[in-house]
């Protein structure tokens, strides 16, 4: 169940677009914020408020890799392993995350601290390897500084 305030927020978003379907992406984002991930209930909430069938909402959301399609940890590491990053050692970084935190691609640490999502190019090829932690951007990663950076996320 969404709070009155969130319902209002969603309704306002709806008003910004010519039709309800156009409002799906931001609305789904808010539902994700409220439910923690895109659970069936999250889609149902969006569907109820926008009047777009829930199956359609889910179809749209699954197109995008950056929504949380399953329950995730407190911090989400989006690590790029595309060409530039790969050449500059991103795959080694993946191993390090596994060694240090037991964190494997597409999974969450047992303590719920980190989830790892492997990304295709995030547009930082010039300063590769690069990652996003939640919404923070980090580049010029090395085997050492990646741990330092992640240690600041609890």
């Amino acid at each position: 169940m969404l709070s009155e305030a969130v319902i209002k927020e969603l309704e306002e978003i709806r008003q910004r677009y010519p039709n309800a379907r156009a409002a799906l992406l931001p609305a789904i984002y808010i539902a994700q914020r409220e439910f923690g991930w895109l659970s069936p209930e999250a889609y149902e909430a969006v569907s109820d408020i926008l009047g777009v069938p829930k199956t359609i909402a889910r179809g749209v959301a699954t197109f995008y890799a950056m929504y949380k399609h399953k329950p995730m940890g407190r911090n989400i590491v989006h690590l790029c392993t595309n060409v530039s990053c790969m050449i500059l050692g991103a795959e080694r970084l993946v191993d390090i995350l596994k060694e240090r935190y037991g964190l494997e691609p597409n999974s969450t640490t047992p303590d719920g601290r980190f989830s790892l999502v492997i990304m295709e190019c995030i547009g930082a090829c010039g300063t590769a390897p690069a990652m996003l932690v939640n919404t923070d951007f980090h580049d010029n990663l090395t085997q050492e500084n990646i741990i330092q950076i992640l240690e600041s996320y609890k």
């Binding site: 069936p40 889609y43 889910r58 179809g59 890799a65």
Partner: peptide, 19 residues
Amino acid sequence: ASAIAVINRGGHSHIEPFS
């Protein structure tokens, strides 16, 4: 009925009902 939709993207896309 809008009971099925394309899910996912590219080579992974296929058809699914909501559940």
